[in-house]
């Protein structure tokens, strides 16, 4: 079972995603796959905020900024669920890890394939992604390639997912229903 959750900055998507996976995990072991690379105070604060949000919810955290497939090696055997947060960081990390940016096609294929594998390893996978598509700006070539990669990845994940939820001002709106 796979759920894709999408929303903008400050939309409340993380809080919703966490509560959601807690509600469906019950006794299963819960993993939080963190993709954010921290290089400054602001990133530090952001991570701290997320950590506080998660505290008391009994997550085991796996830091996996690239190469998502390696995350399953860090999990214990048995019934388990995972919350992957988030696709925008993962895509940026994969794209800009080397000296020159990786192409959008390579990044898209790699991420989608690795998520496909991860999805088979857990009973429920919840993925958080970002709506980065509606500011109407034209950025430099690399940023536009990044936005297209994000769009394509979201599209493919939504197709793979059993349900897709958009979070708007903290309110979940089901845009693909598992009962459909």
């Amino acid at each position: 079972m796979m759920t894709l959750i999408i929303g903008g900055s400050g939309s409340g998507k993380s809080a919703f995603a966490e509560d959601y996976i807690v509600s469906l995990s019950k006794e299963k072991k819960k993993y939080y796959i963190a993709t954010m690379q921290v290089y400054d105070e602001e990133g530090e604060k952001k991570m701290e905020r997320h950590r506080t949000l998660r505290s008391g919810k009994d997550f085991s955290t796996i830091e996996q900024t690239v190469d998502l497939k390696k995350s399953t090696e860090k999990m214990e055997a048995g019934d388990r669920t995972a919350l992957l947060e988030c696709i925008s960081n993962l895509t940026a990390n994969e794209m800009f890890a080397g000296e020159v940016p990786e192409t959008e096609e390579v990044v898209t294929e790699k991420i989608v394939k690795e998520i496909e594998t991860l999805n088979k390893e857990v009973t429920h996978l919840v993925i958080v992604s970002n709506n980065v598509f509606e500011d109407g700006q034209v950025y430099d070539k690399t940023t536009m390639a990044y936005i297209r990669a994000m769009g394509r990845i979201n599209e493919m994940l939504a197709d793979m997912a059993d349900e897709v939820v958009e979070v708007v001002v903290g309110i979940p709106l089901v845009i693909k229903s598992k009962n459909a």
Binding site: G8, S9, G10, V132, E134, Q137, T143, V169, G170
Partner: peptide, 27 residues
């Protein structure tokens, strides 16, 4: 709704988007 875009380079713009979003969630 101001949060549905690329994270801005300027710190002030980032703070504005983030705080506006969180205020709207509370409202």
């Amino acid at each position: 709704e101001v949060g549905n875009g690329i994270v801005p380079i300027e710190a002030f713009e980032r703070e504005y988007r983030e705080r506006t979003g969180r205020i709207l969630v509370e409202l």
